[in-house]
């Protein structure tokens, strides 16, 4: 892009601008190219899932990627209502997994692939306390004690809705100090020792290992949520990964993390 000395080039500015644009475009292309993967044979499956599936789906996806080197499973976790809002707003996703059938209601049906809905797993509620159980919580009714700090999920997300149903079925008004935006945020408050008790899923208590203690909720008031696995894409890699999740191997991973089978 050198200009002949002493001669004004009328198009010089334009040429330079074009060169700069080209360089920028090239840089952008290179940068985005990195994310897309080098080999053309790689397939990416984008999965948006309920927070409660964080550990189990991550483990299942890593297993799958190991046995299927050509597939890259990208996972993102949020509350089911956030997932549905994102999909309705056009977020690119191939597969979504939600906590409970109710969470699926606002999902735009036109986005679902033909015959794309299956039940992935089932989950129930459980009380989580810090390992030492400082609030000495043994029953659901204990949650109404004013000295206790109870954290629930917000009523807009499935775990919050289910917890509210269980509490009202038991006739308990819990002493709530905070409504968290998803089940993992709720669990975190117990793990950090800031809350004495939280109502989360059984799978969260199992996945947290020794970092929390579970206190069962009786079956008479407990809520069972069936987790729909919804395919939004006809892509073969997506179909294959969905089939894997529903296979014995996939189910084993979910069971390891405290889920029940549908």
């Amino acid at each position: 892009m050198t200009r002949p000395p002493g001669r004004p080039a009328p198009a010089g500015g334009l040429a330079r601008a074009a060169a700069i644009t080209a360089t920028v475009a090239l840089t952008v292309a290179t940068l985005t190219g990195c994310g897309a993967g080098k080999a053309p044979a790689r397939h990416t499956v984008v999965v948006l899932a309920a927070s409660s599936l964080t550990e189990s789906l991550t483990a299942a996806a890593r297993d799958y990627e190991k046995s299927h080197p050509g597939t890259d499973v990208q996972l993102s976790f949020a509350s089911s209502s956030t997932v549905v809002t994102q999909v309705n707003q056009g977020a690119p996703a191939d597969l979504i997994a939600l906590a409970g059938e109710t969470a699926m209601a606002p999902l735009e049906k036109s986005r679902i692939a033909r015959d794309g809905t299956r039940t992935l797993a089932a989950n129930t509620l459980e009380i989580a306390t810090p390992p030492g159980n400082p609030g000495k919580v043994t029953t659901l009714a204990d949650l109404s004690r004013p000295a206790l700090r109870v954290v629930l999920c917000a009523a807009t997300v499935p775990c919050g809705m289910a917890a509210a149903k269980a509490l009202s079925a038991a006739g308990v008004v819990a002493h709530v100090v905070s409504y968290e935006i998803n089940v993992k945020a709720t669990l975190a408050k117990v793990q950090l020792g800031e809350a004495d008790a939280a109502i989360v899923y059984h799978s969260d208590v199992v996945s947290a290992g020794g970092r929390v203690r579970g206190v069962p909720i009786p079956a008479s008031v407990n809520q069972r949520l069936d987790y729909p696995l919804v395919r939004l894409s006809e892509d073969t890699a997506t179909v294959a990964f969905a089939a894997y999740l529903l296979s014995d191997q996939g189910h084993q991973r979910l069971r390891d993390h405290g889920f029940q089978l549908p």
């Binding site: 954290v151 917000a154 709530v176 100090v177 905070s178 409504y179 968290e180 935006i181 408050k189």
Partner: peptide, 12 residues
């Protein structure tokens, strides 16, 4: 939301 939590009228 991390430190104070989310409770209507108190920390929301």
């Amino acid at each position: 939301i991390t430190f104070a939590g989310n409770f209507p009228g108190r920390t929301q």
